[in-house]
Amino acid sequence: MTNTLKNLTLKVWRQDGPNTSGSFETHTIEEITDEASFLEMIDILNERLIEDGEEAIVFDHDCREGICGTCSLMINGQAHGPERGTATCQLHMRKFSSGDTIVIEPWRASAFPIIRDLMVDRSSFDRIVEAGGYITAATGGAPDANLIPVPKPVSDAAMDAAQCIGCGACVAACPNGAANLFTAAKITHLNLLPQGQAERYSRAEDMVETMDSYFGSCTNHGECEAACPKEISIDVIALMNADYRKAKVQNRKQLSRT
């Protein structure tokens, strides 16, 4: 049944731009129903700010169904907040209690510069995909879809990895600001499938090295898995590392022959 939360204190990060310093701004929400989503609470706060002649809090969001990966809030120090397997937009106020203080911050990672307030620039993720996160299959020449049988367990495992929504929670949660879970999810999705075999090793190599040029290194904290709204397993990082190692060994062999 519906309950009403009272007296919430929000400490919201406000920052004008990438090169300015930011600080927390405190707002009080006197009353809100627990049926409201977390972002609807911010909508209401923003309406109030506009009414008061102030600028609305800038934050990224779009589908509000947990699938587009646009929303990106650090809530009380947890990426996407307290509910496991849930993106910020799907978080509802029933997960909070009256009198709570809620700290809202942007993703914090050097590869994700803050654009303004709670919005960050995640285009480094796109650079990783552009480096090899695809199967080269130009439009028009594909054979009949059932000519490539894919065993169900393989297809299911690829799908588990492919569910990644590219939100960046893994990076935000990682003490090193590493993007290994994101990169490994994409590599695993494609490298498990028969269609992905032709470019398997070049893909692993190109994507890992692009990742390394932007992000920190993985030291197996496992925070990424815990923060992932799609609960992608950290196992994919092991699979990525195996393919990367093989790619390097193969390259070495080829070099020794030339």
């Binding site: 695809y134 439009t139 028009g140 594909a142 490539i148 269609q195």
Partner: peptide, 8 residues
């Protein structure tokens, strides 16, 4: 086309 591109 989508299967060739790796849609699971």
């Amino acid at each position: 086309q989508m299967v060739a591109q790796g849609v699971p």
